[in-house]
Nucleic acid binder design. Structure first.
Length: 604
DNA sequence: CTTAGGG
DNA sequence: CCCTAAG
């Protein structure tokens, strides 16, 4: 069957999330240079094998793409049995869509403000463009003109190649090369802390760098798939296997998104090279992510893992679930947290709070390391109001309602469980058929590592969100108050900024829902407050330091200059510039650009 | 319930 | 962060 897929960065992700991958079908021998690139859809087995997708599966993946177009509605369960594979081979012709998109072209024609354009590229391309492309594809059926339409050499080039020729410090740079290579362990630790908001004791530079990169890029499979370790250096390889980028709506790596298509095909199939295939499959098979940087990170390099007893920390984190808005239309995802780092002593004590915290302990069985271990599962009770749609959930998936994870697991057993890293987004259509318990109340993680057909287990990068032992303290008025402030991590800030740029300052609930769904804490008010602070910060220390690049004096996790710059810019765009010193940058960036997708200037 | 602002 | 007033 011939199927046309819009091939774009976002789509890649979807495939991955759904446990598929598209590979370059070099086998179609008759291929001409002029032919559209043909891809084959394959399903990724738990052990890394690639199995040709069945027609049904192709259809389903296609459905995912369409879904995206419909502005990510939540698909809960389509009851699709991925477990069984038929031998049918269906190759789907996929058309390679280069970086040009309708949206972009338009903006190029009308307004060419390099700065704006650049900024917009970062947000617009990943999320907006794909839908345009897709709809285009699906509607017209012919995409010749898309393919052939020449790209503007100048703008296009600058835009798609990691911020070349851009004067303004850009995010991609920040994300990809914070000079990790040059940092000392100590500095790496600081960066780590800045990024994830927690300490680490890991001394492995490589690991630290990877972790940080993962955090900053919001992708969890960095080392295994997108990086090559060469001469002790991390070399970005393209986001081929990027299982997820944390921002959901904002896929924030346009630079690679456009160009990866050409190079990605080889990776999945044969690649004896530097790709750590073994590590990849290894990671995928293990149900437990190594997560937050525990001392056992070396396990990543072990071929054979020892069976570990779950630690308390692990149990707790395991039980964490992220949830979307309780508004119901949420897909649930499992959060798989691994052995947390035990370094921060502060959390250990909190275990004792379990009972007083309103938590309950249940147990579940997990095939950790092949031996069925009973693992207690903690379910937290939301401190705020009780859920409303509880019953709805019951009806929806009665079997998962049971509190015991064992049961839950049983219910889910036949389904695909897709583990997300917590930086993950919310609005993509749920690839996994996992349904059900998805709220802040009942937080259960089920890990399905049953041998055989388990799917793409993602290494969870619990960094950043795992310890939400929100210590609350009763106030005089009977209210409760968060005890210690959860430090905003860099990635959170970045998300916030992204969110503001996309939805505009003021749409806090939107931003919260779309970009921060993973974080049950961080209310929209929090976002707003943080933004307020960011504004303040960004406008206060303009002249001081310019070259913050390689955070040398990064004592207290300062916000990187690029971000501040961005904040400033956005503020200017949205007339949020503090009246005091707005003359500094009122000029270029102004009102022209906000007409595109930021037309709500009068929001104040 | 979501925003905006003040505390 | 919290609280509250306003839509």
């Amino acid at each position: 069957m011939e199927t046309e897929f819009g091939v774009e960065g976002n789509d890649e992700r979807k495939y991955e999330e759904a446990g598929f991958r598209k590979i370059y079908s070099s086998l179609s021998s008759t291929k001409q240079l002029t032919d559209p690139v043909v891809y084959k859809l394959v399903r990724v087995e738990g052990d890394g094998r690639l199995v040709p997708a069945t027609d049904d599966e192709v259809m389903e993946v296609k459905g995912l793409l369409i879904d995206e177009k419909n502005k990510m509605r939540i698909v809960t369960d389509t009851g699709q049995p991925m477990g069984c594979i038929s031998n049918e081979v269906s190759s789907s012709g996929m058309l390679l869509q280069l970086e040009s998109s309708e949206g972009l072209s338009q903006s190029e024609n009308t307004e060419v403000d390099p700065e704006k354009l650049h900024a917009r590229l970062e947000e617009t391309v990943p999320s907006l463009a794909p839908s345009l492309i897709e709809s285009h594809l699906h509607q017209s059926g012919s995409i010749d003109k898309c393919l052939n339409s020449p790209k503007k050499p100048t703008e296009g080039g600058a835009l798609t190649s990691t911020g070349v020729a851009t004067s303004k410090p850009d995010f991609s740079k920040l994300k990809e090369e914070i000079c990790l290579d040059n940092l000392s362990i100590k500095e790496l630790h600081e960066t780590f802390k800045a990024t994830f908001g927690r300490e680490t004791t890991v001394k492995d530079k490589q690991w630290l760098k990877r972790r940080i990169t993962m955090g900053l890029t919001n992708s969890c499979d960095v080392s295994a798939t997108t990086f090559i370790i060469k001469d002790n250096k991390l070399v970005k390889k393209g986001k081929e296997d990027c299982c997820d980028n944390g921002d959901g709506a904002f896929a924030n790596d346009p630079p690679t998104g456009a160009t990866i298509n050409g190079s990605q095909q080889e990776a999945p199939i044969t690649h004896g090279g530097q790709v750590e295939d073994q590590v990849v499959s290894d990671k995928r098979s293990r149900s437990v992510g190594d997560n937050s940087g525990s001392e056992d990170h070396h396990a990543e390099h072990r071929a054979v893992k020892r069976v570990r007893k779950p630690t308390k920390r692990y149990i707790e984190e395991l039980s964490e679930v992220e949830s979307k808005e309780s508004s119901g239309k949420s897909n649930s995802k499992l959060k798989c947290s691994g052995l947390g780092q035990m370094s921060s002593k502060s959390h250990i004590g909190s275990v004792g709070n379990i009972s007083s915290d309103g938590r309950t302990v249940v147990t579940r069985t997990d095939s950790l390391g092949g031996s069925g271990i009973q693992i207690p599962c903690v379910s937290r009770v939301r401190r705020s109001r009780p859920r409303k749609n509880f019953m709805a959930l019951l009806e929806f998936n009665p079997s998962s309602m049971s509190v015991t994870a064992a049961q839950l697991k049983k219910a889910l057993n036949a389904h695909n469980i897709l583990l997300d890293n917590d930086e993950s987004e919310k609005d993509r259509s749920p690839p996994a058929k996992f349904v059900g318990v998805t709220d802040k109340d009942i937080q259960i993680s089920a890990i399905d590592a049953v041998g055989g057909h388990h799917k793409v287990l993602k290494l969870v990068d619990s960094t950043g969100a795992s310890d939400d032992n929100v210590v609350t303290v009763p106030t005089s008025k009977g209210g409760i108050r968060r005890k210690h402030h959860r430090a905003w991590t860099l990635s959170e800030v970045m998300k916030l900024v992204e969110g503001v740029s996309r939805y505009g300052a003021g749409r806090w609930s939107e931003i919260k829902r779309l970009a921060f769904a993973s974080y049950s804490y961080r209310t929209s008010v929090d976002l707003k407050d943080k933004w307020r602070n960011l504004l303040k910060a960004s406008f206060s220390q303009i002249p001081s330091d310019k070259g913050i690049n390689c955070r040398k004096n990064a004592a207290s996790v300062p916000i990187p200059e690029p971000i501040l710059l961005r904040v400033r810019e956005l503020a200017a765009m949205q007339c949020q510039v503090p009246p005091s010193l707005n003359s500094s940058k009122g000029g270029g960036s102004g009102s022209s650009a906000d007409s595109v997708h930021e037309k709500q200037s009068g929001y104040l």
